[in-house]
Amino acid sequence: MLGIAAAVLFFIAFLINAAEIDTNDTFSSGNVMLLGLTLLALHVAGIGSGWASRARSRR
Rank of each mutant, 00 (worst) to 15 (best):
residue 1 M to F: 06
residue 1 M to W: 04
residue 1 M to R: 08
residue 2 L to T: 09
residue 3 G to H: 07
residue 4 I to F: 14
residue 4 I to K: 15
residue 4 I to R: 15
residue 4 I to S: 15
residue 5 A to K: 15
residue 5 A to T: 15
residue 5 A to Y: 14
residue 5 A to G: 12
residue 6 A to G: 09
residue 6 A to W: 07
residue 6 A to L: 07
residue 7 A to D: 09
residue 8 V to H: 09
residue 8 V to G: 06
residue 9 L to K: 15
residue 10 F to M: 14
residue 11 F to A: 14
residue 12 I to F: 13
residue 14 F to C: 10
residue 14 F to D: 12
residue 15 L to S: 12
residue 15 L to A: 12
residue 16 I to H: 09
residue 16 I to P: 09
residue 16 I to D: 15
residue 18 A to C: 09
residue 18 A to T: 14
residue 18 A to G: 09
residue 19 A to C: 13
residue 21 I to E: 10
residue 21 I to R: 11
residue 21 I to G: 07
residue 21 I to S: 09
residue 23 T to M: 13
residue 24 N to A: 04
residue 24 N to R: 02
residue 25 D to G: 11
residue 25 D to E: 09
residue 25 D to C: 04
residue 25 D to H: 06
residue 25 D to W: 08
residue 26 T to S: 08
residue 28 S to E: 04
residue 28 S to T: 15
residue 29 S to P: 08
residue 31 N to E: 05
residue 32 V to P: 01
residue 32 V to L: 11
residue 33 M to S: 13
residue 33 M to L: 13
residue 33 M to H: 09
residue 35 L to T: 04
residue 36 G to I: 02
residue 36 G to R: 07
residue 38 T to M: 06
residue 38 T to C: 05
residue 40 L to G: 00
residue 40 L to E: 04
residue 40 L to Y: 07
residue 40 L to I: 03
residue 40 L to A: 06
residue 41 A to K: 00
residue 42 L to W: 01
residue 42 L to I: 01
residue 43 H to C: 11
residue 43 H to K: 12
residue 44 V to A: 05
residue 44 V to L: 06
residue 46 G to T: 00
residue 48 G to W: 00
residue 49 S to Y: 01
residue 49 S to W: 01
residue 50 G to K: 04
residue 51 W to H: 03
residue 51 W to N: 02
residue 52 A to G: 06
residue 52 A to L: 09
residue 52 A to C: 05
residue 53 S to N: 05
residue 54 R to L: 08
residue 55 A to Q: 11
residue 56 R to L: 15
residue 57 S to D: 12
residue 58 R to W: 09
residue 59 R to N: 07
